[in-house]
Every structure is written in C-alpha cells, then in structure tokens.
Computed example of a mutant assay.
Amino acid sequence: MPSLLPLLAGCTCGLCWFKSSYSGGEGNACLEVAHAGTRVAIRDSKAPGGPALAFPPAAFMAFIDSVRGTSADGDVR
C-alpha cells in the first residue's frame, strides 16, 4: 500500500528553509518551507531534523489559497 503522506526522502539539510514573515518574533510555532526540485517541502520549525512533507507546487498553492481564503485566480471566497 503506498504511503498517504508525501514524505521527502533523504536528508533535507541541504535545502534552503525559510519561515513566513507572519511567524512572529519567537518563530517557534510555524512551518518552514523550502524549494525541493520539483516539489515544495514543509517541516515543523520546532523539529528541523524531523520528517518533511513534499508536495507538487500546484497542490501547495491550493493549500495557501485555502488558508488565505482566495481561489487560484485570486478571487476572495
């Protein structure tokens, strides 16, 4: 049975991780994002050595649009 979670295989230490400017001053309660070739990787900022998930860019942007409350074409929902 294939995994339901798109785990990023291998070491993620070579990726350039960044946090949102909205993560707050402490920065310990957010996700970090990195470009991982043809995928967008995310990980928990509190566990940088832990697993990372990787998604196709379109799926990641659909997630971001959903969080922002907009559709893919920028219309507010």
Results as ranks from 00 to 15, higher is better:
residue 1 M to N: 04
residue 1 M to T: 09
residue 1 M to S: 12
residue 1 M to E: 11
residue 2 P to Q: 13
residue 2 P to D: 12
residue 3 S to N: 10
residue 3 S to Q: 09
residue 4 L to P: 04
residue 5 L to C: 03
residue 5 L to T: 12
residue 6 P to Q: 04
residue 6 P to F: 05
residue 6 P to T: 12
residue 6 P to M: 13
residue 8 L to K: 11
residue 8 L to I: 04
residue 8 L to M: 10
residue 8 L to D: 02
residue 9 A to W: 03
residue 9 A to Q: 13
residue 9 A to M: 13
residue 9 A to N: 06
residue 10 G to R: 06
residue 10 G to V: 02
residue 11 C to I: 04
residue 11 C to K: 06
residue 12 T to V: 08
residue 12 T to K: 05
residue 13 C to G: 14
residue 13 C to Q: 15
residue 14 G to S: 07
residue 15 L to I: 06
residue 15 L to W: 02
residue 15 L to A: 04
residue 16 C to K: 07
residue 17 W to P: 01
residue 19 K to T: 13
residue 19 K to L: 08
residue 20 S to N: 03
residue 21 S to E: 04
residue 21 S to P: 01
residue 21 S to A: 15
residue 21 S to Y: 11
residue 23 S to G: 11
residue 23 S to V: 11
residue 24 G to E: 11
residue 25 G to A: 14
residue 25 G to C: 08
residue 26 E to A: 12
residue 26 E to Y: 12
residue 26 E to F: 07
residue 26 E to P: 01
residue 27 G to V: 12
residue 28 N to F: 04
residue 28 N to Q: 10
residue 28 N to D: 14
residue 29 A to V: 05
residue 30 C to P: 03
residue 30 C to G: 07
residue 30 C to K: 08
residue 30 C to N: 03
residue 30 C to A: 12
residue 31 L to Y: 08
residue 31 L to I: 15
residue 31 L to C: 09
residue 31 L to A: 09
residue 31 L to S: 02
residue 33 V to G: 05
residue 34 A to I: 05
residue 34 A to E: 01
residue 36 A to L: 01
residue 38 T to E: 14
residue 39 R to Y: 02
residue 41 A to Y: 01
residue 41 A to S: 01
residue 41 A to D: 01
residue 42 I to Q: 03
residue 43 R to K: 05
residue 43 R to N: 00
residue 44 D to Q: 00
residue 44 D to R: 03
residue 45 S to H: 04
residue 45 S to Q: 08
residue 45 S to I: 07
residue 46 K to V: 05
residue 47 A to F: 08
residue 47 A to K: 10
residue 48 P to A: 07
residue 49 G to T: 09
residue 49 G to I: 01
residue 50 G to W: 04
residue 52 A to P: 01
residue 52 A to R: 00
residue 53 L to Q: 06
residue 53 L to T: 02
residue 54 A to M: 05
residue 54 A to K: 03
residue 54 A to P: 03
residue 54 A to W: 01
residue 54 A to L: 04
residue 55 F to W: 06
residue 55 F to M: 10
residue 56 P to R: 14
residue 56 P to Y: 09
residue 57 P to D: 00
residue 58 A to H: 11
residue 58 A to Q: 09
residue 58 A to K: 13
residue 59 A to Q: 14
residue 61 M to A: 15
residue 61 M to L: 15
residue 62 A to C: 08
residue 62 A to V: 12
residue 62 A to W: 09
residue 62 A to Q: 14
residue 63 F to C: 08
residue 64 I to H: 12
residue 64 I to A: 15
residue 64 I to Q: 12
residue 64 I to E: 10
residue 64 I to K: 11
residue 65 D to W: 03
residue 66 S to M: 11
residue 66 S to N: 13
residue 66 S to R: 15
residue 66 S to H: 15
residue 67 V to F: 09
residue 67 V to G: 05
residue 67 V to W: 14
residue 68 R to L: 13
residue 68 R to E: 15
residue 68 R to G: 13
residue 68 R to I: 09
residue 68 R to H: 14
residue 68 R to C: 13
residue 69 G to W: 06
residue 69 G to S: 08
residue 70 T to P: 00
residue 70 T to C: 10
residue 70 T to W: 09
residue 71 S to L: 15
residue 71 S to Q: 14
residue 72 A to G: 03
residue 72 A to D: 10
residue 72 A to S: 15
residue 72 A to R: 13
residue 73 D to Q: 11
residue 73 D to A: 12
residue 74 G to P: 12
residue 74 G to M: 02
residue 75 D to G: 05
residue 75 D to H: 13
residue 76 V to L: 07
residue 76 V to E: 11
residue 77 R to Q: 02
residue 77 R to V: 12
residue 77 R to M: 03
residue 77 R to Y: 02
